[in-house]
Design a protein around this nucleic acid. Structure first.
Lengths: 242, 242
DNA sequence: CGGTGGCTTGAAGCTATTCAAGACCTGTGG
DNA sequence: CCACAGGTCTTGAATAGCTTCAAGCCACCG
């Protein structure tokens, strides 16, 4: 340990000190020097549910870390049909590197807080420190795995299996500390019925019917339309097709 | 130009000299030195249609470049339902970095020739030369874009739109030199009807019916069940839902 | 030739959608 | 406090689209 390092270990920007992204997100790949540099040009925001973060075919000049809340990634056809192609939770990195414009649309599904930086700063750091690119690569590989898992759900599962799979996915992502062996859990749905329909390739009515079915079969309980209580994750899993 | 460089420029391994992957694939990121090192442990194979290249939940100890043919990436549910989650064409890189076992199944859809290397060799080179990791990252980002495009098709398009989208996608990938403004093209389908069904989340009968419909509507012609002639790519595109 | 695998076609059935109405929840203004 | 308006969500009935089940066709190969 040199003096120099000591100085810089103490020099972690205030902005970053309690930030989850520094531990588990992409910022974990940066040393204190770089963190200071990045923090200078970055800023925290909070946005309401429904706010568009990245517009389709819009030039993107900044990236961001999701600090809390849920962001939905959407694609739509010319006639208005929509499909949600991904959800991002803290501390995911938001933005498509190496492309001037994004083919997808990102929108806050819940209230969301973000830490955003100029595109150029990230791209410069990516060249300087391979560790950053490596982290982004890994996140991208995970997103690809998720997307492919979801293709199976979209292409081959029935409506009720889709709903069960969706609830399991949300349960696991809302609370990452959830013990995989846990039997029960509860959470607030981050999506409206319409969003769930767009995620599962169904209509809102079908989503509603399948949720009532799961409810009357005693697999889940629902309070205030949004809060879901799962008493037996096993039973839910058995209905997910897996 | 130093003498050293001259020597090595001339030293491109025979194996690689006419290889497309060296120009457009991941090997393009390697310098002649590295190419020589890699070529020592790599080998070309050719396999028949139907051969399994990577088994589900099987330890993977090698990666490969696809040199010709088409590889299908599949996932399946416990009850046997299958979904194709991606297709790989030359000069795609085959293999999932940073994971001991793959959650997907790769199978030759047509006769395929491959150039494969031990996993360890690639991972070592990835550490040495960031350019290699960068290329793999870019390919992964493209695969993610493709997967998300396909999620829209699976979730929101009708059977006939799915077929039109599929034919367009194949036309563009089989012949990468195809002028985007071209009006007509023709190709051999690399997949059987059953594969197409697994790719589109349909049954084989529905695939067959939709193909006959496209045929009787004069959008495509089909010879010998496999060869497809598209006279108006525009008409096909209009039926794809875009 | 008969057999096999891949493909097509038809008829019936079922699942999810569409269309329509009503319930519920929340916030606003009287 | 209640009434009411505007979402969001649920429920019902009818319909459409895809699947299922069942034959039959076609090309290829022994």
């Amino acid at each position: 340990m040199t003096v120099r390092q000591d100085v810089h270990s103490a020099g972690i920007p205030v902005l970053c000190q309690s930030c989850e992204a520094r531990h588990h997100g992409v910022c974990g790949a940066l040393d204190p020097d770089q963190l200071v540099g990045l923090a200078k040009t970055s800023s925290k925001h909070t946005v309401e549910a429904g706010v568009e973060l990245i517009g389709d075919a819009e030039a993107v000049d900044s990236y961001a870390n999701v600090l809390s809340g849920v962001v939905k990634l959407m694609k739509s056809l010319s006639d208005g049909r929509q499909q949600i192609v991904g959800l991002q939770f803290a501390p995911d990195f938001l933005g498509r590197p190496f492309k001037v414009e994004s083919a997808i649309n990102a929108e806050a599904a819940t209230a969301v807080s973000l830490c955003s930086f100029p595109k150029a700063a990230i791209e410069r750091m990516m060249k300087e420190s391979p560790g950053l690119e490596h982290r982004l690569f890994k996140q991208t590989l995970n997103e690809l795995d998720d997307a492919r898992d979801w293709m199976v759900t979209l292409g081959r599962k029935s409506a009720s299996e889709k709903l069960a799979s969706f609830l399991l996915m949300i349960a696991r992502n809302i609370d990452p500390t959830l013990d995989p062996a846990a039997q029960s859990t509860s959470f607030d749905l981050p999506l409206t019925r319409a969003d769930i329909a767009d995620f599962l390739g169904l209509t809102i009515e079908t989503v509603s019917r399948q949720l009532t079915r799961l409810r009357s079969d005693g697999v889940i309980r629902i309070e205030n339309n949004r809060h879901v209580i799962v008493d037996s994750l096993n039973r839910l899993q058995r209905r997910s097709g897996a």
